[in-house]
Design a binder for these strands. Structure first.
Lengths: 341, 341
DNA sequence: TAGTTATTAGAAACCGATTTCCAAAAGGAT
DNA sequence: ATCCTTTTGGAAATCGGTTTCTAATAACTA
């Protein structure tokens, strides 16, 4: 195991001062001639600067912190969030940044998000999953740390998310085109802003189109998964004499429960009731009936967030926070049926 | 924004030397009285040691590197691997370690896994997804860095994986109990050791039980997903006059394709042919027919890997590498039918 | 009580860069 | 050729800890 090379070794070998090496490596003021000489030597010998030493003295770390709260019981397993993170990761790594999960504990002692970032001289932060009301998150967003979010929206942070309104609009219009007249919705828990937006959008669009929307056609599920969808659907339908002929659902995960819930009451999907989801996760294509849904563009979300954050770090534009909306697509499958009327 | 506190500030405030503070914080030789005094003060003022400074001088970093190759096109989206990682993460964080993805690029320059680890003074590495033949991986495993793997097996590394043999045994026995006589298998790509083990186990078990296993009942799928399963099933069945009455499949993902492939040929699952998968991902429960499969215990895998790695780091036992097998479970659903004979 | 040993606290070197400030060299203008 | 700018390379300070070595103190032994 050969001894580790330091910047001093390089300097000695090249008959230069360490400071000159550092400059050559970091676009400092050096002649292009010496710069080339240094770069050459470095490439040949495979010298690489010690990260910790650099971070100690410099004010940056080439590291991006990831907030991925597990309190909401959404871990890396979640197909949507993990995919967004994956795409973000791939993008920023191309630019030389690496990812580190922000932890609330450092070695022995507890730490706030902000303290962790400062301590590590984090260049920027992406909030993939986070509670918008968490004190730690708020403190972080309001700090000097550059942040971007693919989840929470807030006046103090750049956010990159799906155009939920467009998604609902697409759904409603498609349902109308296919001859549905009594639309309802099983919304997701309103603690999540995405679900809130979808519900609000649905209300607005129905109003704009002058379509009736009885409150009994609306229900909010208790949780994020199959079971809550199942229960919500049964509850919604159970009390109704005139059933809706189509249901928009907050997410695909919930949709699966909704569909089975509908079936458990003796109705068929899509023959009696059409269902349209939101997300397009991998199960959706495989489910029976294959789920008609709104596909979120996870790649675009991840990459756009990456681009914005890097711009922010390099101080290129994006002066004040704004919301970026990524278009969604309607994916037509079998859970919506064309109706004659 | 209050100024950052250094160890010198703490020393001054307590009228002690910086070195004493450091010792108090790191179980060095200090009287319990001063130690208490320091700890108290630190807790009260919220001082936290600068990570980069510590890493620079010390030989550890409280950081664990994650190898999660994307070359195999398995990203964080993959339900099995991401879940293992999630469970590992939760476990090691309890012990104060944090996770950092190992990148092949550091700031500007390319780096081998090993150089990256040395540069960052990584305490240990978990290989969640990695190519066992990759030069960089081999170099890493053979180095002084403590490693654990939940994927590749090798004499030089501790591995924690599902007991694939037991899984196949469970499948075969269940199929036998339910009256099946002509078992076949759609194995996954043999580039993955898990798939290889499953195929080998199947061959062995059939031989041990003295059951016939015609080579035509065996096929290896081209890829990891639905389409390759679909094609493999059609290819297998297409050429056979006497069809198998049950098929073991390398993974759930492939199983879905296999089932639809069988159906596309006019046969029914499970009435004509039973299918049993391996993994138990979330789609399996929702699929029609709900997939009977072998559940991998991702929690146990992640946690056991975490435990072993931390033991390794603390130099507690695990002198030489060994393979740890985590038991699996049979999950009975609807894709296997009881047959009278 | 004197002498020896075990603990505890501090001084100083060191980890490996970055950065500021300065002097020397190079380039331009007259 | 001389004087003034602009570039370029180097010396030294600094970032914030850990660790080794030494001195002082406390504890123990006879």
């Amino acid at each position: 195991m050969k001894k580790k090379k330091t910047i001093y070794d390089v300097a000695k070998a090249l008959n230069l001062a360490p400071s000159t090496i550092s400059k050559a490596l970091n676009n400092g003021a050096v002649s292009s001639k010496t710069k080339a000489r240094v770069l050459d030597y470095v490439k040949k010998t495979g010298y690489v600067t010690a990260t910790s030493a650099r971070i100690l003295k410099a004010k940056y770390s080439w590291t991006i912190g990831v907030v991925f709260s597990e309190e909401l019981n959404i871990g890396l397993e979640h197909p949507f969030f993990s995919s967004v993170l994956q795409n973000f990761k791939t993008y920023v790594e191309k630019w030389g940044y690496e990812l580190s999960f922000i932890v609330q504990q450092l070695g022995q002692n507890k730490l706030s998000y902000l303290d962790w970032c400062r301590n590590k001289k984090i260049d920027g932060v992406i909030i993939v999953v986070g509670d918008a009301n968490d004190r730690g998150i708020i403190e972080l967003i309001e700090s000097e740390i550059k942040c971007v979010s693919t989840d929470i929206v807030n006046d103090n942070i750049h956010s990159v998310r799906s155009d939920n309104r467009q998604g609902i609009e697409l759904s409603v219009e498609y349902l109308l085109e296919t001859g549905h007249g009594r639309l309802g919705m099983v919304a997701g828990p309103q603690t999540s802003s995405a679900f809130t937006e979808r519900l609000i959008a649905f209300r607005e669009i129905m109003k704009e189109k002058n379509l009736p929307l009885p409150e009994e056609y609306l229900i909010v599920s208790e949780g994020f998964g199959y079971t809550s969808g199942f229960n919500a659907a049964r509850k919604l339908l159970g009390s109704l004499t005139v059933k809706p002929d189509a249901l928009l659902v907050g997410s695909d995960d919930i949709s699966f429960g909704v569909i089975r819930g509908i079936e458990s009451l003796g109705f068929r999907v899509p023959e009696d009731i059409s269902v349209i989801g939101f997300d397009d996760i991998s199960t959706s294509r495989l489910f029976t009936p294959a789920l008609t849904t709104i596909r979120q563009n996870k790649k675009a979300i991840g990459e756009t967030a990456g681009k914005i954050l890097i711009d922010l770090i390099r101080e290129k534009g994006h002066k004040h926070p704004r919301e970026t909306k990524i278009p969604v697509n309607l994916i037509v499958r079998d859970s919506v049926k064309m109706r004659k009327n």
